[in-house]
Simulated scan of single mutants.
Amino acid sequence: MRGRQFVVGDGVTVADFVLAYTLDWGNEVKPLGDCPALLSYMERMYARPNAPPRIAQVLASIAAK
Rank of each mutant, 00 (worst) to 15 (best):
L23R: 06
Y21R: 10
A37Q: 05
L38M: 11
K30F: 13
F17I: 06
M45H: 00
T22S: 14
Y21V: 04
P49W: 02
L23Q: 03
P52S: 01
V12K: 09
D16L: 00
P36K: 14
Y41V: 00
L32R: 04
C35A: 06
N27L: 12
D34G: 14
A56P: 04
A51C: 10
A47Y: 14
A37M: 07
V14I: 04
F17Q: 13
W25N: 05
A56C: 01
A51V: 06
A15D: 06
L32N: 04
L38G: 07
P31C: 05
P53G: 13
A56F: 00
V18Y: 01
Y46T: 00
V12N: 08
A37R: 11
A15E: 02
T22P: 02
Y46R: 14
P31L: 00
V18T: 12
V12E: 09
S40Y: 05
E28T: 11
V14G: 13
P31W: 01
L23I: 07
P36S: 15
R44N: 04
D16S: 10
L23V: 12
R54W: 15
C35R: 07
Y21H: 09
D24T: 04
V14S: 09
L32E: 02
R44A: 11
G33P: 12
G11Q: 08
L32T: 01
K30T: 15
D34Q: 06
M42D: 02
D10A: 15
T22Y: 09
R44L: 03
P49Q: 13
V14L: 01
D34H: 01
L32G: 09
P52V: 09
T13P: 04
P31R: 01
P49V: 08
P49C: 06
N27P: 12
V29R: 11
E43A: 15
N50F: 08
I55C: 04
T22I: 12
W25F: 15
C35F: 02
R48I: 04
F17V: 10
D34A: 13
G9R: 04
V14P: 00
Y21P: 00
G11A: 14
A47I: 06
K30M: 07
P52Q: 12
P36F: 06
A56T: 05
A20P: 03
Y46L: 03
L19A: 13
L32S: 00
D24G: 11
D16R: 03
V12T: 07
P52T: 03
L39G: 08
T13W: 00
D16P: 01
N27G: 07
R48Q: 11
A47V: 07
L32H: 02
P36Y: 10
E43G: 12
R54P: 06
L38D: 02
R44G: 04
